[in-house]
Write a protein that binds this DNA or RNA. Structure first.
Lengths: 235, 235
DNA sequence: CATTTGAGTGCACGGTTGTACACTGACAAT
DNA sequence: ATTGTCAGTGTACAACCGTGCACTCAAATG
């Protein structure tokens, strides 16, 4: 008797050696769709499916078999795309970080970065359109397996140093010591990160609404800016 | 044939119905030790063992069987202490939060709370003496199962409101709006939390050392205080 | 003393997991 | 037209999981 059945309970017949088109399910009717394109499609299905499964669990809590199931393939076929679940995790980190960097770039070409409100607007929009990715990042940043945690930490450090450069170009801050700039950038980033978490939690029973979260963050950033304007850079 | 062997590979014999003293291992030689005391001891062993197992994994990643094994009992005996692993998790949250509150109380009776350095010292000492508990809290705060996440969030909110009260008693802040005070308290708490995470990660390959973490945090808090001193409370 | 209690035991179960292996068959390249 | 590639398949297995059940036997109770 078989060990598993997956999603094919009806075709357990004798020599039923299966058609390859079982996976993912063709979206449009009659296109040929190259082999590479098909592969890319199930690969994406694996990544997206993982994020979906993580709606209420951490990355460590989803199994290879589950992921394969949501992508419509058999467990062993997973290895055609990733050498291990950890590898898939690293790809998810990279993907999430790509979005984060994109966000920074968007914020950078906003009229004067010192407008905290505009930057926050961009943040909110990004979080809303990429909820799953941001949830992944916030879940795994501290809770994940060491490898993923390290990958996120590295990218975050990079993020801070990019912001440091941005700050150094602002009018009153040219005279600042690099360490001080970085310290301020770190504070801003971690505050922003707290906003992300609150946004993901927002509009849920017993948590602050989105508007409140944004309003508070705006005041917090203003408070930080105020402190910076009075800072003695020479120390 | 048996399904498991646990830690008794040699006594798989016939009627070997085991001696109860297998569990936990008696520490001192010949004390009687009441039944309740023994129970409390294995209960603690279960809690501590769980924290130990979480050195490199999240709470969701440790199994009931593993926990029981480290405590030296058979898996089914786990249920004599907790109705489920989730219940054990909630107890761990409470335990961790008790430590956090203790810390706040310590900080409160320090000469003038406005001395950020002293408060940070207390923080560092607490984190160092209760590493496992703090690691648990930081791991599960965002990454954990919903129930645990909610429990931590609730306690954190309580924490912020306690600090809000403390702030309201400081000289220059009596005229402040309650919302503004809470906003500032929230910023301080989240900054402190970031310190905790950095401390746990400190003295590990590729991360800032403890001294650097503390120095940076001190400057960040000073920057926040500076901002507060210039804040216009009327909005 | 005899009796009750309950922490801990051992076995068994049905389920899930990761992964090795040999396979198939549509597409791509020759 | 023949051949090769390789995403996907089905089977199998050993390990682990949570938990139900009937048990033991030292300590607590009377």
């Amino acid at each position: 008797m078989p060990d598993d059945e997956y999603e094919h309970p009806e075709m357990t017949g004798v020599g039923a050696a299966a058609n390859t088109l079982t996976a993912v399910s063709q979206s449009t009717g009659a296109e040929p769709e190259s082999r590479a394109a098909r592969k890319e499609r199930t690969r994406k299905a694996l990544l997206d499916g993982t994020l979906e499964l993580m709606a209420d669990r951490s990355f460590a809590g989803v199994s290879l078999r589950e992921i394969a199931r949501t992508a419509g393939i058999v467990p062993t076929a997973f290895y055609r795309h990733f050498a291990s679940i950890e590898e898939l995790g690293v790809v998810l980190v990279e993907e999430g970080m790509r979005i984060l960097r994109q966000m920074l770039r968007d914020a950078r070409r906003t009229p004067s970065t010192k407008s905290a409100g505009a930057s926050l607007d961009i943040l909110v929009r990004q979080v809303r359109t990429h909820e799953a990715q941001f949830r992944f990042l916030s879940r795994e940043r501290y809770g994940g397996v060491p490898e993923i945690r390290r990958a996120i930490a590295t990218e975050m450090k990079l993020f801070v140093s990019e912001l440091t450069v941005d700050l150094s170009r602002i009018d009153g801050l040219q005279s600042w010591d690099h360490d001080d700039l970085e310290m301020a950038a770190d504070l801003i980033v971690s505050t922003m990160f707290a906003v992300v978490v609150d946004l993901l939690e927002a509009d849920r029973p017993g948590s602050r609404s989105e508007a409140e979260v944004v309003a508070r963050a705006e005041r917090q950033l203003r408070l930080i800016m105020l402190g910076m304007s009075g800072w003695n850079p020479a120390k």
